[in-house]
Every structure is written in C-alpha cells, then in structure tokens.
Computed example of a mutant assay.
Amino acid sequence: MNKSALKSAGMASKYPDADVLMPKPDGSLDLGEISQEAGAAANVAAGPIRLPYGIPEHWGFGLQHVQAKPDRVRAIQKLGFPNVQVFICDVASNWTHIVEGKDGKPLLVWQKGGYDLTIVVTWKETYWSVTTALPYRVAQGTLLYKKGEK
C-alpha cells in the first residue's frame, strides 16, 4: 500500500462522512461538468464535477480540507463569496480553462476580477471530485483547454 492509501485506510473511522457528496442549493450533486469536447481537447475524462465532504487534514480533500485553511477562507470571502461551498460551486459551474497543475492534476480555472479562481479535481471512476480550491492571482501550469477555442 502507498502512503496515501494507508492514510485513507487509517482515517476511515475518524472521517466516516468523507466521501459524502455535498449538494448544491437545488439539491443536485453535479456542480458542473467537463464536457465531451473539453475532455477530448484536454485529454481528460468527461464527466460531472462533485464536492465531497472531505477530510480537513493537510493531505485531505473536499469541503472540509478547504474550510480547514483559515487564510484561504478569508481570501475567498474577501473576493465576495459568502463561504467556501459557494466559491467551489461557482467555479465548478463557470470555469473557462483547464490547466495541468504541477502534480498532473487538472485545475479548473474561472478568470474573474483579476483572479484565476481555481478548483483542483481528481477523477473518481464516474465523476470529478474536488480536492481543493484556491483563489490564485495566476494559476500556474500548462493550458490544456480554453472554452471557446478549438
């Protein structure tokens, strides 16, 4: 087992709700999607984007991971978002770019107000799971896809 699998296995009892998906206000679990066109252009799977409740640890993921970072929460609120969940939902539904991050994971980027509002996603067999969210000034990585360009 690798280090990440060991952490996950050891944390299952500590965080039993980690994989519970957080709905949008309308009750839908799909916050947005990577379309067939975008997926083909970026060489990633097409599918819905979903937000797990997550784990608040440094190596964690999901809503709890982002909420456990006070500086990030303040930065998100300073940009006018009432909370982390609204930020993630808005980026997931409005992203304009797919960028390959330094660890190879796709970053979904929404350019708004001089920022690259970003969510990092991981493929989970049938959907994209939000790992973390960041309000970057400029997202770093290789541009894989930009909506409106072929």
Rank of each mutant, 00 (worst) to 15 (best):
T118C: 02
V130P: 03
P135E: 03
S129N: 02
K69A: 05
T126V: 08
L21F: 09
A9D: 09
K112V: 12
P106F: 05
L63W: 09
K78N: 14
I34H: 06
K105P: 00
H65N: 04
A133K: 07
P23K: 00
F81G: 05
E100I: 03
Q77F: 08
L143F: 07
D30A: 14
A133W: 01
V84M: 04
D30G: 10
T142P: 02
C89E: 14
M22G: 00
S93T: 13
L107Q: 04
V99F: 12
Q140R: 12
I88K: 00
K102Y: 11
Q85I: 06
Y15M: 05
K14D: 14
Y127G: 05
G113D: 14
G62Q: 10
T142C: 02
L117T: 01
V120C: 05
F87P: 03
D19L: 12
A38S: 13
M11C: 03
L29Y: 14
T96G: 09
P16M: 10
N43P: 03
Q85S: 07
N83E: 13
T96V: 04
V66H: 00
L144T: 04
S8G: 11
K69E: 12
E37I: 15
D17Q: 09
Q64V: 00
L29C: 10
R137Y: 10
S4H: 07
A46H: 11
Q85R: 14
K146G: 10
A75S: 15
V109W: 02
V86T: 15
V99A: 00
K147E: 08
T118L: 04
L51E: 06
P23M: 04
W123M: 08
S13K: 09
W110T: 11
P70H: 08
I76K: 01
G47K: 07
G104V: 09
A42P: 03
L143W: 07
L107I: 12
W95N: 09
V20E: 15
G32S: 13
L6E: 13
P16Y: 09
P70M: 10
T126S: 08
D71L: 06
H65T: 01
L134C: 12
N43E: 15
G39I: 03
V84S: 06
Q140I: 14
N2T: 14
S129D: 03
D17L: 11
V66E: 11
S129R: 03
K24Q: 14
Q111M: 07
A40T: 15
D71M: 06
L134R: 11
I34L: 10
S129P: 02
P70Y: 10
V84T: 15
I34V: 15
A45K: 10
W123I: 02
E149D: 14
G113W: 13
S129I: 01
N83G: 08
G80C: 09
N2C: 13
G114P: 07
K3A: 11
F61N: 00
Y115H: 12
A18Q: 13
D71F: 06
T126H: 04
D90Y: 08
G114W: 05
A46M: 12
E100H: 06
A133V: 15
G104T: 06
A42Y: 05
L31C: 07
V66R: 00
G62C: 12
K147Q: 13
A40D: 14
A92K: 01
D30L: 05
